[in-house]
């Protein structure tokens, strides 16, 4: 046996720590058929990939195509794997890595928006403060009584996060979020 190698650390997975983890947004065009979402989610859980956000809806009714938008994190090598593994699924028509595409066109990120519905309950000064903040964040009131508001806010994930964090001490009751919808900038489609 080769003596100088005997003391080297021993694991298959060492290469992984060398690369930085990044967040990427993938757009996946699929047949809108039963089980297709289960295939995508099963792929992520089965292979140990992360899902930070996932949205899905039929986007081309006449062709029965849905668009799934997935925000995931991983090393560049893992992200490339996710991309190819998704392409391997039979009902998948196309996978586009919007983050890579945006960078290729010298943008920091693709267009990404999230919608959140946020319920706040309270009276007096806190209630007024919540309303003032909603105004500043361009959130709209879509339901209200004397004791509560429901705000609707649309924006980048970090704006939504920030708004929710600020509302926390002001009587935050519950939140429902859509997850990220994303498109590429410019005139072309994916």
């Amino acid at each position: 046996m080769n003596a100088q190698n005997l003391n080297a650390p021993s694991a298959y997975f060492m290469a992984e720590v060398v690369e930085q983890v990044e967040s990427h947004t993938l757009s996946v065009l699929v047949d809108n058929e039963p089980g297709v979402l289960a295939r995508v989610i099963g792929l992520f859980s089965g292979r140990g990939y992360n899902i930070d956000s996932l949205t899905v809806s039929e986007t081309e009714h006449e062709k029965h195509l849905s668009r799934i938008t997935i925000v995931t994190t991983g090393t560049p090598m893992v992200i490339e794997q996710i991309h190819h593994q998704l392409e391997r699924l039979v009902p998948v028509h196309r996978v586009t890595n919007l983050t890579v595409e945006a960078r290729r066109r010298s943008f920091e990120k693709p267009l990404e928006r999230e919608l959140a519905l946020i319920k706040v309950a309270g009276v007096g000064e806190k209630r007024l403060e919540a309303l003032r903040l909603a105004d500043a964040f361009r959130a709209t009131v879509i339901d209200a009584t004397a004791e509560h508001f429901v705000f609707e806010i649309t924006g980048r994930t970090n704006k939504v996060e920030q708004f929710i964090a600020i509302l926390k001490p002001l009587g935050l009751v519950e939140v429902s979020r859509s997850g990220v919808a994303a498109l590429q900038r410019g005139p072309e489609g994916i």
């Binding site: 046996m1 080769n2 190698n5 005997l6 080297a8 021993s10 694991a11 298959y12």
Partner: peptide
């Protein structure tokens, strides 16, 4: 052996 490299084989005579 698990976790070793190609040039760290265990040969029958050793």
């Amino acid at each position: 052996p698990s976790g070793k490299a190609h040039n760290e084989m265990l040969l029958p005579d050793e």
